[in-house]
Design a protein around this nucleic acid. Sequence first.
DNA 1: ATTTGCCTATCTACTGATAGATTATTACGA
DNA 2: TCGTAATAATCTATCAGTAGATAGGCAAAT
Lengths: 183, 183
Amino acid sequence: MAITTRLLEAAEKRMRRGGYNAVSFRDLASDTGIKSSSVHYHFPKKEDLGVALVERYSERFFDALEEAASSARTPKDRLDALVRVYRSALVEDEAICLCGLLGAEVAGLPYPLSQGIQTFFTANIEWVEDALPDTIKKAERNKIAGMVIAGLQGAMMIATSLADTDIFDDISATMVKQALPGD
Amino acid sequence: MAITTRLLEAAEKRMRRGGYNAVSFRDLASDTGIKSSSVHYHFPKKEDLGVALVERYSERFFDALEEAASSARTPKDRLDALVRVYRSALVEDEAICLCGLLGAEVAGLPYPLSQGIQTFFTANIEWVEDALPDTIKKAERNKIAGMVIAGLQGAMMIATSLADTDIFDDISATMVKQALPGD
DNA sequence: ATTTGCCTATCTACTGATAGATTATTACGA
DNA sequence: TCGTAATAATCTATCAGTAGATAGGCAAAT
């Protein structure tokens, strides 16, 4: 695998556990077997690394979302697909969402990073908005979409805090049910 | 004001913005006008500071919650009180919940801290559970309570990320409506 | 006299970052 | 095909700054 990819993977793993400041160039160096100065060759400033991480994560996330929802026909199926993507991020990676974590620390992050996080969330909310039945007014859809994303992000965080994956399933299922009362 | 209190306030302000690693003994020293070694006198290890912060925050939070809900008679009133407490934490302190932020970074925190965070969330969920109408079965109440807390925590995070307080109000109002469909 | 609270001074470890040398790889013209 | 120039990727060595933490001293309060 390309060294930049290996660096990004190592960095994402660490950052999704401890946050932006929990990743150091020396950590990444020892993770990948190169020297910290060589890490700087690939990502001159830490900010560059952070931006690349958020970009890569967002891309992967929305790709997975398209994939998971490709055969979804109903709003319920689409929301279930969304939940599955969030769930696999939590369970398979044993970590919360990169943007969720960075979103929590956003006040202490370099500006370009906060922009990437912002984009991630607005796109996320838009996706849910479009997934909801258009029998609901757009303004209302937007609010429900915000609730769904907030709920999923919060559920990830709480599930990690309580070391209890089940609570994520309970919360996400409950929320989808509430968001689509008809089904 | 007592120096320990001033230290805790300064530390909370910083930690609720950038997370655990965004607070240093030297920061707190310059915030309060004493030397960093004197900060160690009050909180020998950083972990001690962290634990004290979570304890203090939890206490204050539940006090405010009792106060806000003291005259609440209906489930709707109680949930509205909860939302008000969360909202004032977000708006007045211009920061997200301390435990929400630390919960996101929990994998990188000393164990005693994670315990405090855990306690905060279980107590939080229990409070909502008790606030919900007992016409709903307990198991269901628990799931809705989890959803409400997850939604509020997520809403804080997203509102901060997007630098948009209104979205917190939209999400929280929508969620209370969904949690109490009858009202 | 003891405790409390703060000080100076210092330690080791780690942070992000840079300069400059060295090696490996690739591209290209003779 | 061979030699060479250029580029890419890594290295060693180092910097100034900051991290958490400790030892020991000094002064004021109890």
